[in-house]
């Protein structure tokens, strides 16, 4: 309750601590989320995804700069991977954004994936609520460096920017399912490099092949040059920011924002159900040692996973399991 009030007042320490409590699975975090939830849903959430080193953090920095010039406040959630071996992480996204470190209108928080597979951390959904409740106008969510399948960002962002760089594979890559389908805006970054025109052409072909432009919106493909060439980079960033705004206006004018919010909310409820139903059962099985016993039984082929799972379900979900 107390923490919730402080967050709404824009208290940075309170906000960052709540995000940490969410990450660390501290039970009081849920109470605070309950308290701030009614005050969320106001910010434009923009997702930035793409392969490692594609330039996501640099583009995020550019987007912060643009929004600040328009006097909009910005929250950034930047995700980097957790080591599967030690549980440690190097969170280095904010290196590119440090010129905004002292700006009270900008809040940057780095998160580690902690084993989540979709390109984000499990805590991202609730962390977006926290930044939203702080009153930030725009929330930029930067995923880990993604491959083909990490599309979790679509469950959180209103606008998804997919950042590509030349030289990552042949044209077959461009027609594959997964990350190539989720873009509202494509950025061909480092467009001064060889192969960027070819990549642009391939993307055009892919978009031409989609019968109906997605929701009446054909994802634009933007070429952004070397970040160390300020004129060229600025030109690209200006174009990007116009398209970001254009996409948001499109979502509002066609009322597709409602569909996106519904998808986001559905996902969120799924997660909450999982955390309140599955996790307590798993915790019980782990702490009592029953899970290990079950694995032993399976190894000896004395039972099978489905029989065991149905047996556990039978103990906890009597009302749902019909004989």
């Amino acid at each position: 309750m107390e923490l919730g009030k402080r967050i709404k007042a824009g208290d940075i320490r309170a906000a960052s601590r709540l995000i940490r409590n969410i990450e660390d699975n501290v039970s009081e975090a849920k109470t605070t989320i309950k308290h701030i939830f009614p005050f969320t849903g106001n910010a434009h959430v923009i997702g930035i995804t793409g392969s490692p080193g594609a330039g996501k953090s640099t583009l995020v920095d550019g987007l912060i700069e643009w929004h600040r010039k328009l006097d909009r406040t910005v929250g950034v959630l930047a995700v980097d991977p957790t080591s599967p071996f030690t549980g440690g992480a190097i969170l280095g996204d904010r290196i590119r954004m440090q010129r905004h470190a002292e700006d009270p209108g900008v809040f940057v928080r780095s998160l580690a994936t902690r084993g989540a597979l979709g390109g984000l951390a499990k805590a991202v959904g609730d962390a977006i609520h926290v930044v939203d409740a702080m009153g930030k106008d725009v929330i930029l969510v930067e995923t880990v460096g993604t491959g083909q399948q990490e599309v979790e960002i679509i469950n959180h962002a209103h606008t998804v920017i997919v950042v590509l760089v030349p030289g990552m594979g042949d044209e077959i890559q461009a027609i594959k399912a997964g990350i190539m389908e989720i873009a509202d805006i494509f950025v061909v970054n480092k467009a001064d490099r060889e192969g960027s025109q070819k990549l642009h052409r391939e993307l055009m072909t892919v978009l031409d092949m989609s019968k109906i432009p997605k929701d009446g919106w054909r994802p634009p493909i933007l070429m952004i040059g070397n970040a160390f060439d300020p004129v060229e980079f600025d030109r690209g960033m200006t174009e990007l920011t116009e398209k970001v705004k254009g996409h948001y206006d499109h979502l509002i004018s066609t009322n597709q924002i409602g569909d996106r919010i519904r998808r986001k909310t559905r996902h969120e409820l799924n997660e909450a159900l999982r955390s309140c139903i599955l996790e307590p059962v798993m915790k019980m099985l782990v702490t009592s040692g029953e899970l290990d016993t079950m694995i032993d039984v399976l190894l000896k082929k004395e039972s099978d996973p489905y029989t065991i799972a149905e047996d556990v379900a039978g103990r906890y979900l009597q009302d749902c399991i019909k004989p």
């Binding site: 992480a89 190097i90 904010r94």
Partner: peptide, 11 residues
């Protein structure tokens, strides 16, 4: 990182 900490490096 190898010790299992989450490390924020700011450059």
């Amino acid at each position: 990182r190898d010790a299992g900490f989450e490390v924020i490096y700011t450059g």
